[in-house]
Write a protein that binds this DNA or RNA. Sequence first.
DNA 1: CAAAGATGTTACAGGATTACGACAAACTTG
DNA 2: CAAGTTTGTCGTAATCCTGTAACATCTTTG
Lengths: 229, 229
Amino acid sequence: MAAPKLLLVEDDPALAELLEYRFQSEGYNVRTTADGDEALMLADEDVPDLVILDWMIEGTSGIEVCRRLRRDKATAHVPIIMLTAREAEDDRVRGLETGADDYLTKPFSPRELLARVSAVLRRVRPALAGEMLEVGDLKLDPVAHRVERRGQQLAVGPTEYRLLKFFMESPGRVFSRGQLLDGVWGTGSEIEERTVDVHIRRLRKAITVGNSPDPIRTVRSAGYALEAL
Amino acid sequence: MAAPKLLLVEDDPALAELLEYRFQSEGYNVRTTADGDEALMLADEDVPDLVILDWMIEGTSGIEVCRRLRRDKATAHVPIIMLTAREAEDDRVRGLETGADDYLTKPFSPRELLARVSAVLRRVRPALAGEMLEVGDLKLDPVAHRVERRGQQLAVGPTEYRLLKFFMESPGRVFSRGQLLDGVWGTGSEIEERTVDVHIRRLRKAITVGNSPDPIRTVRSAGYALEAL
DNA sequence: CAAAGATGTTACAGGATTACGACAAACTTG
DNA sequence: CAAGTTTGTCGTAATCCTGTAACATCTTTG
């Protein structure tokens, strides 16, 4: 299972280093920055699985970073945990309303932050926590790397597997070919968008058992979506 | 939009009543109980969209309720917010590890709980948190790219979809053909204004289900508007 | 009521988008 | 290294969508 990618935005060097070390030893893939604008750049060039964001940072403020992450379609659904030194309830409420998923008030223990990160990831990206994904009659086991439908094992190629997993993490949601290339092939892949069609076709073929219905919906001029039939 | 269904498990009568009142006035559908076993029964007979669970309750303990909710397939993915009077970090971590999605430490303000509930719902059930456009009996889900009326899926072409979405973002407002061309086709499109008529016609046809009334009003010599019938 | 103006309706051809099959290169695996 | 898989790209077929024109119908106005 791929290590969850975290983006840590924290301008206290001591705390940043401590957290980076702790998360890495827990198997996370961490990038760190102290600057709001740089954080947005990093998030844009390689979309992380979760952002830990200090409220009070240099450059663009935490809440502004949060807002911009939400505005950009690529990062709109990335969960955000805010760190705040303030006790004021207003700030916490404002953070949540801006789109943060959670917050912690300093001081906090690394252990508590770890628990939160893991809880949020489990909720938002079950596959990263090793949980079984189920959509309709499709089951995907991220640990065993197996896919089955109606109790039947399916032979799914590597790319089709990643594609299916990506879809199953957001059932019903429509993804453009560009979004699929970013999410499945990795940001900045130099691949023709038409190629996505071919892999969709291969995936469709692979998950067909008997005369089962096609759970992948083509949305003309928009992209594809996996339906929970 | 259907009111989100909350299940409140709280054994302090005063607090329970206060919260119940606040949530109801915010448009939530709330059921309350003070007992852990009863909570499980209620959750089982009508699965709620979110559970607010006091750690210290009579009967089955909060953490046990949490565990059992997670174990039952029907309720395994219902988000849980725990309320705890304890300050101990251990308890909070334990709560998160047991499968709670979030917790609040007493005392907290109803406003903060409301913000949390809304944040969690927005994550888990976007449709319940208002990321969906609704006008009259029309529903448009921009994420899933779906349109339905009276619970029935509608087949809407790409341009009609954009047109409808544009209308639904400003219900009741009249748009001239020129404004529609700018807003839906993009500024500077070299298209005959009469073409709009044709797409209005196609949209009307597409959103007709049975003998439903036509929600698109023609304003002679001015344009069209979508009415919230 | 007749004429002018505006909107509704239909048909159609060209255009745009997607599905499919095949293939060569790159990559895995034994 | 050889056999087999996987992958990205093309060309073409199939499908769907779109804009326009032509005509019908309705509304306003004189």
